[in-house]
Design a binder for these strands. Structure first.
Length: 928
RNA sequence: GCCCUCUUAGCCAAACAGGCAAAGGCGCUUGUCUUAGAAACAAGAGAGUGCAGGUUCGAAUCCUGUAGAGGGUACCA
């Protein structure tokens, strides 16, 4: 009987599906273990071999945990709302639900071929109304909640209303505010609150809701016709598509993630995620400590509020700079300066983010003509506008201290503004060249701060600022609230309708609010989002619905909870089930989600925890980022201006242009010319110059995808080599977390390994496994392997496991071992990696039950223990010969023995040994 | 600019706490089988660990410097 992987794999995949082998139970006496993959967006291109890398790793771990006696939850689903399906719909008129459905079917077929142990009964799709019903439900929970800083948690709005009814609102200093800068809200008494009408009350509450409608500067992407969240913008262009993005003030649904900034930061210390990922989140949250500070305007009412981390440098302020978008710019600019300021603001606002970021080194700005007073010296300070100040951070205004801040230094230098020094640097420094920005040195020219060091001065300055009532010590975060509405069709409808201009949430019984049908997936003529096209789409036939939809990250912010209880139509997850599964034990996915999905899912988890629906605060205990698999592109070389293609080795003789060809045309870089000719017309008529009768192509490593014709399809690999070989090979490529190029050439090595494994069971078609008792060497090989594989899996070092399997099978082959007692545990060891072949051989050994729940072999040290060891004897670190000693000998005895040896004397050449180092079981080193 | 990671045979990689003479796979060479090729099986060659110092009885492993590659982030006051 030969190893026929096609038949075997089909057989076992069918059996696992029919017997629901990998179904997880929501109640069990076994300990639970939850392994989750970041779910895919089902694109039209299908999976390439890069996608399953993480899925294979997590599948190995899931299968390993089942062998170890855990009740394993290992689900899969689809993040099926999203832009590509919508873009396709715009082009073709085909409903995105339809293309999404087709793409999912394709993904599923591809995944099934690889033999994953998913519990498919728990599959979820974010675009399914039965799923997004609960996404909408959570949105409403957020809409009806606020963050109570006193309790340090989210609560129902009723507790806030209670505070208004009993305490009123004390204005900006009230301790129920999570931020004192963003709310332009006047105080009121409990009595006044009672007199407010619905609209007024609602406007006030809107400042506290965790899902809120607010005006904010957003990243507007004109080409896509939608706003984008900060994490969806990279280098000033949209992450998807690379379209320009500009800043625009818009009324938008947003998520008040900023109230969780501190907890999101603190929580990082309690979870086992990679350092780079935690660091990315810390930077994104961007906590900085400092002080708020108000500068009163000269000659008029009002003040400019700034945030600074260096209140100690207050006496070094020589000007104040506003962001071009700052609302005071218009109000304070003097008549003489109006023209210049208007021109500058227009220029700054119309620049795209990319342009602005591209020339950060160019300094631009303009004087407003207005002055503020220094809070301590009363001296007038000029107010400037400059686009190095960002509207979105802090208050959109800075106090400029040119001597001690690099950006202020440059700005002052450019416009000839003074740079008063207030800190004596701790090291030699030229203030002409640069600012002294270090938090080290002694304060000078600073009144009551003189003589203090920076740290003490910061403390003292904040005290004085608070005493004057012009500001207070505060913590600022770079993290912004997340814009939640998208002007697009293919997303969850936001479950809100408007009555007299007031937004109201739907009641829970009215969910899901289904996505309505529209005639086109484009904005309306007046620029309304596509949902505004829907006919008669009104709440109770009367009130307008919100027409923006939720962003891509909505559905993925809680899906790990839905898997626990995917079919529940009463709750998003039952309390009981959530208590059992708690959170994800192992989460696998790409690092590109560091500041998007992985921050949002932590936010929603904390919120649901606060509101008592779940009992964990973090979604995933451990997280591993798998590296990306890059493509190895194939290039042929055309001689410029001709139709002649030359082999790679000859290309340097001519002026050539490289052309990407489909990687499937090449076998070990030898191109199949017939396939190439059939592929494209320009090759059909081409001439070819060969080397040794072959057309050799060049290679280039780049992103895998359609664009470079370098995508390798896992189906092809499964058909040609089998899923087990593909699984092993993907792991064998290298460490999981490293990015590496795909190269099919090496796959025959692991394919050969499986054949060799098969031959331990079948020789010339005969089953050769016997029941003889294993000898010492065979047991040693087995147990050495058990130890290594167990360690490897626990460390997620799957590439080394594959090598260790090869070594083990090579050794057993050399030992001619066909003994059941050895081969049976070996099959269990290999089964997480190559589940089909091991199931088959397991059955051949006489088992009726699946191997999936066989217990993992235990390492027994007795079998690898040696009684003696052949010590390498080295002289000054150089190994000269080996000598065998009993391991029971003490260090001293070994030393004594080795010095009596004749060989030792030869190498000592008559000199005395200065020192003898004996490491038992490892080495002897003699220092001469 | 700042932060992080990596550098071991032609290629991918292992060596987990410094300790044998640096695994395994691909590719290559040779042989067996075969009409031939492929496959299979067997045998073999190939590195002193980017570079320069240092610590140590002993360094791929630790430290310093330096070069190269990759990733992240960037006017955050």
């Amino acid at each position: 009987m030969d190893y026929n992987f096609t038949e075997i794999e089909k057989k076992w995949q069918a059996r696992w599906a029919a017997e629901k082998t990998f179904r997880a139970e929501n109640t069990s006496s076994k300990p639970k273990y939850y392994v989750l993959d970041m779910f895919p967006y089902p694109s039209g291109a299908g999976l390439h071999v890069g996608h399953p890398l993480g899925y294979i790793a997590s599948d190995i771990f899931s299968r390993y945990k089942r062998h170890k006696g855990f009740n394993v939850l290992h689900p899969m689903g689809y993040d099926s709302f999203g832009l590509p399906a919508e873009q396709y719909a715009i082009q073709t008129g085909q409903h995105p639900a339809l293309t999404t459905e087709q793409n999912i079917a394709r993904y599923r077929e591809q995944m099934d071929k690889i033999g994953f142990s998913y519990d498919w009964d728990r599959e979820v799709r974010t675009s399914d109304p039965e799923y997004y019903k609960w996404t909408q439900w959570i949105f409403i929970q957020l809409f009806n909640s606020w963050y109570n800083p006193r309790a340090k948690k989210a609560e129902d709005l009723s507790t806030l209303i209670h505070i208004f009814e009993t305490e009123g609102f004390k204005g900006l200093s009230h301790d129920i505010l999570t931020s004192d800068i963003e709310h332009e809200l006047n105080g009121f008494t409990p009595a006044e609150w009672k007199t407010f009408d619905e609209k007024r009350r609602n406007d006030i509450l809107m400042n506290f809701r965790l899902a809120y409608l607010g005006e904010a500067y957003v990243n507007w992407c004109p080409a896509m016709g939608t706003v984008l969240a900060n994490d969806e913008v990279k280098d000033g262009v949209s992450e998807r598509g690379g379209y320009p993005v500009e800043r625009k003030l818009m009324k938008q649904w947003s998520m008040r993630i900023t109230v969780y900034a501190q907890r999101l930061l603190d929580g990082l210390d309690k979870i086992d995620w990679t350092d780079s990922l935690k660091e990315a989140q810390r930077n994104w949250i961007g906590r900085s400590e400092g002080s708020s500070l108000r500068f009163s305007l000269k000659d008029r009412e009002g003040s400019i509020e700034v945030f600074t981390t260096r209140p100690d440098t207050i006496f070094g302020v020589s000007f104040v700079t506003l962001a071009p978008e700052h609302e005071l710019v218009d109000q304070i600019t003097t008549a003489e300066q109006k023209k210049a300021v208007d021109e500058y603001v227009a220029f700054a606002k119309n620049r795209s983010e990319r342009e602005r970021q591209a020339d950060v080194t160019k300094i631009s700005g303009v004087f407003t003509g207005a002055y503020v007073g220094h809070p301590f010296t009363r001296k007038p300070i000029p107010v400037w506008v400059g686009d190095y100040v960002l509207a979105g951070y802090g208050t959109g205004a800075v106090m400029a201290v040119p001597a001690h801040d690099t950006r202020d230094h440059k700005f002052a230098g450019h416009f000839g503004l003074p740079r008063p020094q207030v800190i004596e640097p701790a090291a030699a420094h030229s203030f002409e060249e640069d600012a002294w920005g270090e938090k080290e040195g002694k304060l000078i020219n600073s009144d009551f701060l003189n003589g203090l060091d920076v740290k003490a001065a910061i403390k003292k300055a904040i005290e004085e600022i608070e005493k004057l009532g012009i500001g207070k010590g505060k913590v600022n975060y770079r993290l912004r609230d997340a814009v939640f509405g998208r002007q697009r069709y293919w997303g969850e409808p936001i479950p809100i309708y408007y009555k007299n201009g007031i937004p109201h949430a739907l009641s829970y019984e009215e969910l899901p609010l289904r996505l309505p049908e529209v005639d086109k997936y484009l904005p309306t003529e007046d620029g309304e989002p596509p949902l505004a096209r829907a006919n008669n789409w009104k709440y109770k036939g009367e009130f307008d619905y919100e027409t923006t939809t939720m962003p891509g990250w909505a559905g993925s912010s809680w899906y790990f909870l839905r898997y626990m209880d995917a079919k529940n139509d009463k709750e998003f997850v039952s309390k009981e089930t959530a208590d059992y599964w708690q959170n994800v034990d192992l989460y696998l996915g790409g690092s590109e989600h560091a500041t998007g999905h992985l921050l949002y899912v932590r936010f929603w988890t904390m919120f649901l925890f606060d509101r008592g629906y779940i009992n964990v605060e973090e979604p995933a205990k451990k997280l591993i980022n798998q590296g990306m698999i890059q493509g190895t592109s194939c290039l042929v070389y055309r001689i410029n201006g001709t139709q002649k293609i030359v082999s790679a080795g000859l290309k340097d003789k001519y002026e050539t242009t490289p052309i990407h060809i489909d990687v499937n045309f090449a076998d070990n870089n030898a191109v199949d010319i017939d396939k190439l000719k059939a592929w494209r017309d320009d090759f059909a008529n081409a001439e070819f110059e060969l080397e040794s009768g072959k057309l050799i192509c060049g290679n280039q490593v780049e992103k895998m995808g359609k664009r470079y014709h370098n995508a390798v399809n896992p189906d092809d690999m499964c058909n040609k080599f089998g899923a087990d070989t593909l699984r092993l090979y993907e792991m064998f490529l290298g460490p999981l977390e490293l990015s590496k190029p795909w190269n099919t050439n090496g796959i025959t090595g692991v394919s050969g390994f499986l054949k060799k494994l098969w031959r331990l069971f079948y020789k010339d078609g005969n089953f050769v496994v016997n029941n003889e008792a294993p000898n010492k060497d065979e047991l040693k090989t087995l147990h050495k392997t058990i130890k290594k594989i167990t360690d490897d899996i626990e460390r997620f070092s799957f590439n080394t496991s594959v090598s260790n399997f090869m070594i083990c099978v090579n050794e057993l082959t050399d030992l001619k071992c066909n003994k059941k007692e050895i081969l049976e545990p070996l099959l269990v060891l290999i089964s997480p990696y190559a589940p089909h072949i091991t199931e088959e051989l397991w059955e051949h050994l006489g088992h009726k039950e699946s191997i999936a729940y066989a217990s993992f072999p235990l390492f027994n040290e007795e079998h690898v223990k040696e009684t003696s060891f052949s010590y390498p004897v080295s002289f000054n670190g150089k190994v000269r010969f080996n000598v065998e000693f009993d391991l029971s000998l003490s260090k001293e005895d070994v030393e004594k023995e080795v010095l009596t040896l004749e060989q030792t004397n030869n190498y000592l050449e008559g000199k005395a040994a200065k020192k003898v180092i004996v490491v038992p079981g490892r080495i002897i080193n003699i220092v001469v």
